[in-house]
């Protein structure tokens, strides 16, 4: 897409005469590529007051689906707005390998709530490395809820003996009934998937 067209669309996205015109501009930007477009979409997403335009932005970011999108989506995980955080999880979980590097980073993020969202994205994504990332969280994270989320997902998508072992070993890390139950269910699911 030519630079002049991108500029025109970016302008329409922000200042279009109607909501429909702005939606169309955003959807067309989904055909473009490059850091500038992604950053502009992500910035607008956080400022935007129209839910429809926000949905169109999510759609376009998923369509572009490159590493810049992954980086922007990682920022969404830190938002105070639940809708924006959920959009971040969704984007990271569907753009495939472009999200891998960012996810590896975000599962170690200092804030536990952000780590939990990153685990959700890993668990929902269909990446080959997802089980490996979840195992890492189960072994290394200090927060019970984050580890429990990772165990729950590994129970769903895991299949190897290694997955089972990691969950078994994690069983003694926390002692709440909730955690015991999560471990039990995950092991049951793993056994059923064999």
């Amino acid at each position: 897409m030519q630079e002049s067209r991108i500029n025109e669309l970016l302008n329409l996205m922000k200042k279009g005469r109607s909501e429909n015109e702005r939606i169309m501009a955003v959807l067309d930007l989904g055909e473009a590529t490059g850091e500038r477009v992604v950053k502009a979409l992500a910035e607008q997403f956080e400022l935007e007051t129209s839910r429809v335009v926000q949905e169109a932005i999510v759609s376009s970011l998923i369509k572009i689906g490159d590493k810049y999108v992954a980086e922007s989506a990682a920022e969404f995980l830190k938002s105070d707005d639940a809708y924006i955080r959920n959009a971040g999880v969704e984007i990271l979980s569907v753009i495939g390998d472009s999200a891998l590097e960012v996810l590896e980073k975000m599962i170690k993020y200092p804030d536990k709530d952000v780590r939990q969202l990153a685990v959700n994205a890993v668990g929902e994504s269909n990446l080959k490395k997802s089980p490996m990332l979840l195992r890492k969280v189960i072994e290394e994270d200090e927060e019970e809820n984050v580890v429990a989320a990772a165990i729950e997902y590994l129970g769903e998508i895991g299949s190897s003996e290694e997955d089972r072992k990691v969950i078994m070993q994690a069983a003694s890390r926390f002692s709440s009934p909730f955690f015991d139950y999560t471990v039990k269910i995950a092991l049951k699911k793993l056994a059923e998937s064999k």
Partner: peptide, 10 residues
Amino acid sequence: DDASRRQVAL
């Protein structure tokens, strides 16, 4: 799939 459904909904 989910992404296409959203696109069609828009």
